[in-house]
């Protein structure tokens, strides 16, 4: 069998693939965080909770209402996005005049409430979500086995991330969003309904998290802690990419997933901390992040 540094290539490729799947979730979550932070200066600690809500919405939709995977892929993000808009209108908007720390505390509290409620309602053991029939099975690439569902997660995430980047960087709506990030009061004086734009952005950001939650449901155990364990890594990804940078969060999300995967092969003991070591290095050498503006 072909080996690289004494490790079978198939093992390396397998971990790279798993890392890319994780990286796909990092990218989608950190993208939403970056957009929300860029426009609202809110460090959205509830992002992991919205991710979990996306997965639970898909699970409950299937169990209680018979809503399958494909409709859930659209309906769960819509429902969670609507909830996000409600949170923004009822709670967050009162905090914009205050120190950003208050937004962080509020969203942290929300995350605890959502996760506590999920724990109370569904217990801690977790439930599995079936892989949709169309995506079962594997591709045998000869040099490695690629489960079709995992390939789909990577593909879907890249499409979603690229589309989001395209909308923000290349369309009129995106230009308005970028302008609001730079100088919102003037934009509002030009006649743009900035409060609506802010609410929609928050809703869109958390809908992305929910979409990641639905995509992840068939590859993980759906449980109340799934968000909190992920969101810490995602925040590190955002810091590494540069707070508020769209491209930064996509690239760092995918790259760090792969680095994590490779670390699992080379030195498994370090795989849980490698992202944070990189974050520390980035903070020391380039505090604005790899893609952030100094």
């Amino acid at each position: 069998m072909t080996q690289l540094f004494g490790i079978p290539v198939a093992v390396i490729l397998g971990q790279l693939m798993l890392g890319l799947v994780n990286g796909s979730f990092y990218a989608m979550l950190s993208l939403g965080l970056a957009v929300i932070f860029g426009l609202m200066r809110v460090v959205n600690f509830a992002h992991g909770a919205f991710y979990a809500l996306g997965a639970f919405a898909a699970l409950l939709g299937l169990q209680k209402l018979g809503i399958g995977y494909w409709p859930a892929l659209v309906l769960a993000p819509l429902a969670v996005g609507a909830l996000g808009i409600l949170v923004e209108r009822l709670l967050l908007r009162h905090l914009y005049q205050l120190d950003p720390l208050y937004g962080l505390l509020l969203t942290f509290g929300l995350a605890l409430m959502v996760e506590g409620s999920l724990h109370q309602l569904f217990g801690s053991s977790g439930e599995s979500y079936p892989v949709p029939a169309q995506l079962q099975g594997v591709f045998n690439l000869g040099f490695m086995i690629l489960p079709i569902y995992r390939a789909w997660v990577i593909l879907a995430s890249i499409i979603v991330c690229f589309s989001t980047w395209f909308v923000i960087e290349r369309t009129r709506l995106g230009a308005t969003l970028r302008a609001a990030t730079e100088n919102a009061p003037l934009l509002q004086a030009f006649g743009v309904n900035v409060p609506l734009l802010v609410a929609a952005t928050y809703g869109g950001g958390v809908a992305l998290a929910a979409l990641a939650g639905v995509l992840s449901a068939p590859v993980i155990l759906v449980n109340s802690d799934m968000g909190s364990s992920l969101v810490v890594v995602v925040f590190a990804v955002v810091v590494i990419g540069g707070m508020g940078s769209i491209l930064g969060s996509i690239v760092s999300g995918l790259a760090l997933g792969m680095i994590e995967g490779l670390t699992k092969v080379a030195y498994p003991e370090a795989s849980n901390i490698v992202v944070f070591v990189i974050m520390a290095l980035v903070l020391i050498l380039r505090p604005a992040g790899l893609f952030g503006r100094e």
Binding site: A175, T176, E182, N183, F190, V192
Partner: peptide, 20 residues
């Protein structure tokens, strides 16, 4: 506005097209 309010994140034409 007095400070002109040109957006650094937008091109000249994007600035021109910004206001609805």
């Amino acid at each position: 506005p007095e400070e002109r309010g040109i957006y650094a994140c937008l091109s000249a034409e994007e600035n021109l097209l910004l206001a609805p």
